[in-house]
Computed example of a mutant assay.
Amino acid sequence: MTVDAHHHLWDLDVRDQPWITGDRMSPLRRDFSTGDLRAAIRESTVDSTVLVQTVSDPDETPEMLVLADSCERIAAVVGWVDLTGRDARERLGGLLSHPAGRWLRGIRHQVEDEPDPDWLTRPDVLAGLAAVEDAGLLYELLVRPHQLPAATKAVSRFPQLTFVLDHCAKPPVSSGELEPWASGLRELAAHPNVVCKLSGLVTEDDWDAQPDATRLRPYFDVVLEAFGPGRLMFGSDWPVCLLAAEYREVLGVARDLTADLTETERAAVFDTTARQVYEL
């Protein structure tokens, strides 16, 4: 079986997605429901998924918990709280005590949009991360390459907190360059409490050139060397991936990239690691 460790859902009548702008992003400017998710994974081996937040809105996470309660495929939720807020602990407690709070496994923030490259090492953010750790949750890192040094410093402060790196820190696939992304990724991966999602790569390249495993191979090789198959998890990043590839194509590219791994190693990437990390 397969776990998809990263996907989204949204209803534009309930909440706008302000990051969906411009003609090229227009395929995403519609609702994506649990019914759409079921249809996307219907002919795949995916039996469990992780629903991840999309906007910094405190109302979104409770709604996602309710969706997890109603959809048999959603096995975990990664939500959002304001880590800089003095009430972060109370907010986390409120989510965990929600009637569907048992689905909450982690917290994420769009650090990639923060203008301060050292946002993750601010004292108020570190206090928020401490609250996440005390709540028994994990923290997902959504960062770009220039933010990797700060992410590494934050990770080093919390050796008992599990961090999950989203989208391999968004390497510059379209330019064909590896540095400084590769060096920053290796430094982060040196910390054993970090796990990485094999996700989001198809949309970091020229969308018209995807899906193409050969173009992604140099970046996958760096990620595999840095984390090893035991700390990698497949994620579709659906429906965002639709900008470059269909769900089945993203899954196919991931299987192509991991074709040389052993059966046990591939099982870790596509199933067992996510089940362990998210306690599925």
Results as ranks from 00 to 15, higher is better:
115 P>E: 11
35 G>D: 12
49 T>S: 12
18 P>Y: 07
207 W>A: 06
147 Q>K: 11
206 D>N: 14
23 D>Y: 05
187 E>S: 15
53 Q>V: 01
67 L>P: 03
248 R>W: 03
109 H>R: 15
271 D>N: 11
252 G>M: 01
159 P>Y: 05
236 S>Q: 08
225 E>H: 14
100 A>W: 03
168 C>A: 15
255 R>G: 04
275 R>E: 07
232 L>I: 13
128 G>S: 13
39 A>Q: 08
193 N>F: 07
219 Y>W: 15
235 G>N: 05
278 Y>C: 10
4 D>N: 02
141 L>C: 02
246 E>K: 09
270 F>N: 03
184 G>H: 01
23 D>L: 14
235 G>E: 03
169 A>N: 07
138 L>R: 11
84 T>P: 11
145 P>D: 10
134 D>Y: 08
51 L>N: 04
4 D>F: 00
60 E>P: 07
254 A>R: 00
275 R>V: 03
153 K>M: 04
7 H>R: 05
188 L>K: 06
255 R>N: 05
246 E>G: 08
136 G>E: 00
140 E>D: 13
194 V>E: 06
20 I>G: 06
243 L>G: 00
20 I>K: 04
29 R>Y: 11
232 L>G: 06
157 R>D: 13
19 W>H: 05
57 D>Y: 04
231 R>D: 12
243 L>H: 00
76 A>N: 02
184 G>W: 04
165 L>T: 01
148 L>T: 11
77 V>T: 02
144 R>Q: 14
141 L>D: 07
54 T>C: 14
49 T>Q: 03
70 S>D: 14
187 E>Y: 07
190 A>F: 05
51 L>F: 02
270 F>K: 00
17 Q>L: 09
107 I>L: 09
83 L>G: 09
137 L>R: 01
265 E>W: 00
13 D>T: 15
205 D>A: 12
189 A>S: 10
75 A>G: 05
259 A>H: 01
79 G>T: 05
247 Y>G: 01
127 A>C: 11
35 G>A: 11
208 D>M: 07
139 Y>V: 02
264 T>Q: 02
267 A>S: 12
2 T>W: 09
246 E>S: 05
141 L>A: 05
1 M>N: 11
71 C>M: 08
51 L>C: 05
245 A>I: 02
56 S>C: 14
2 T>Q: 06
222 V>A: 03
149 P>A: 09
232 L>M: 12
12 L>Y: 12
34 T>E: 01
101 G>T: 03
6 H>L: 04
221 D>I: 09
259 A>S: 09
23 D>T: 14
97 S>W: 07
211 P>V: 10
103 W>Q: 00
